[in-house]
Amino acid sequence: MLMSNRFFVAIVVLGLASTLVYASDPSSLQDFCIAVNDPKSAVFVNGKFCKDPKLATADDFFFHGLRGLRNTSNSVGSTVTPVDVMQIPGLNTLGISLVRIDYAPNGLIPPHMHPRASEILVVLEGTLYVGFVTSNTDNRLFTKVLYRGDVFVFPEGLIHFQFNLGKSNAVALAGLSSQNPGIITVANAVFGSNPKISADVLAKAFQVDKKIVDYLEAKFW
């Protein structure tokens, strides 16, 4: 029964994510456009090289790689498994994608943003503390503790995060309203840019001693 509930919730997430397509990526002008790397085996449709629809198979729309727990033994205690056009060529031009997120106890998806997509997340296992911050007009923080079966939405372009509050592993699925949502992790972008942002700039921006900036840049560089 538990497994059936998980897949039911996953189907709901995918359905809800598909309703967000018009928020970001443009609508496709054909049924599908299966991405291919070799133009010789493709047809040019809607400005893209696509596999000849007559050669399409069910495997072009299929991915089985979300089964089983992921290794979360890293610095943040989480692992993201994407399901985008690289995994399912048939997703090309459809304006949606999906990720599975595994969290160790105290595992974190650090504050980040998706410049091209809203996100809808459903908890399959565990307890997550999630939230997002509005733009600079008021920088208002919206947070919620989520349990199995709970759903939360992160608006496009806003900084958001997830943290596993539980003592056991947690798993979530998230649908995104773009086949290429992009991701900007705040700490990585600010302290791990290439080349580095001037420590003088960051020290003044964060109102901290320059030595703290040097330390943080060394952690992320």
Rank of each mutant, 00 (worst) to 15 (best):
I96A: 11
G175D: 09
Y103H: 12
Y215K: 15
E119G: 13
S24W: 00
G77T: 09
F161A: 05
F44I: 03
Y103T: 04
S73F: 05
L173R: 05
D38L: 04
S135G: 07
S193N: 14
T72D: 13
E156L: 14
F63D: 10
L165W: 01
D38W: 05
L216K: 13
K51W: 02
H64N: 14
Y22P: 02
D60H: 04
D214F: 10
N71V: 14
N180Y: 11
V151S: 09
F7A: 01
A23W: 01
F152H: 00
L165I: 04
H160K: 03
K40A: 14
A174D: 05
S177Y: 02
P181T: 01
C50G: 08
E125N: 12
A174Y: 10
C50L: 02
F32K: 13
A199I: 02
V145E: 12
L176E: 09
I212N: 11
T72P: 06
A10D: 01
D209M: 05
D209A: 09
I11C: 07
G192E: 11
P105D: 02
Y147E: 12
L173Q: 07
L69E: 13
N92W: 03
F61A: 09
L202S: 01
V151Q: 05
F44M: 08
N169R: 15
F163T: 02
A218V: 00
P111A: 08
H160D: 03
V133T: 13
V123T: 12
H160N: 09
C33G: 04
F49K: 03
S198R: 03
S118N: 10
D59P: 00
P110T: 06
T19R: 13
P39D: 08
A56Q: 05
H160G: 00
L158Y: 08
F142I: 15
G107N: 04
N139T: 04
T127F: 06
T57S: 13
G77D: 10
K167W: 13
N194T: 15
M113R: 15
T137L: 11
L16N: 08
V122I: 11
I120K: 04
F142C: 03
S178I: 01
T93M: 11
S24E: 06
L121D: 06
T79D: 05
K210I: 15
T185W: 01
P195Y: 09
S177H: 04
V45S: 11
